[in-house]
Amino acid sequence: MSAVDVVVAERGLRRRSRFGAERGAWLLFLPAMLPILAFSVWPLLQGIALGFTNATAGRDVVVEFNGVQNYVDLAGYELFWNSFGIGLIWAFSVTLIQFVASLCLALLLNANLWGQGVARTLALIPWAMPPVIIAIMWRLMLHPTYGAVNGGMGALGLPDNINWLGQASTALPAAIVVGVWAGMPQTTITLLAGLQGVNAELHEAAQIDGASTWQRFISVTLPALRPVIVAITTLDFINNFNSFALVYVLTAGAWGTMLPMLFAYNEAFRYGNFGLASAMGNVIVIVITFFLFFYLRAQAKGRES
């Protein structure tokens, strides 16, 4: 191949990529885009719109826009706000505990301990299980007479007859522990990945300068880990706020565990109030966006300073 041929081929390549790339990309993308548009984007837009209508279940119902009526109704709907508060407590506690526990575990898994490989595999177990089965398993663990939790407490001389999922004072905390358990693998693995990206030379330099383990953690590890921490806690918070199956099977929303998704599900598919349930969805989106906005802005500011 002569130099001229190469130049021609190069030009040909370049021309083709200028000319046909955009169209080629769209064509390749079409089979994935059509179902997403039809069954994801379109229903989502409809869902947002439904939140401004009086839609109900049933065949011959005329659906009419009713403006902000749903939101006026929601404002005075005490049970909904109650559930909303439970959702916030649940999402904040699960995300925070999950983060602290996963960070500790990730640091341990990154500390060159003996049996690290086995530990990493075991740490993935909850990830491998469907939420429904996680909930069933923990119902057994928390069973008042048979459960291992009461069994263990009894062995330690503590009260061993607590009906964890059957009373208002313990149901939500118990569900939070189960939520933490279920979400730990993703958080741990992501943080572990971040830890392995932390510059080892910086650590060594700090060590030579006489920094203690704790000082190195605060001034080297944490700042390097910051983007990963922000990303995973954000995702965890959204996931936890939108959580459904776990608590549906654990308590079905009884004893002060009625998460917003359970509430909206009941509103839509038990009572048939499609419009009102969609309005709840809209409110949830706005509140999540609100929290994320402040969280991400605070993080961005923190990085600048």
């Binding site: 939108n242 969805g281 809209n282």
Partner: peptide, 21 residues
């Protein structure tokens, strides 16, 4: 953008229209 957005939206918003569709 869509991949990120689709993570934020609660399922309840999408399931009612899907059910009706």
């Amino acid at each position: 953008g869509w991949i990120l957005l689709s993570q934020v939206f609660p399922f309840i918003l999408i399931i009612i229209p899907l059910y009706l569709m």
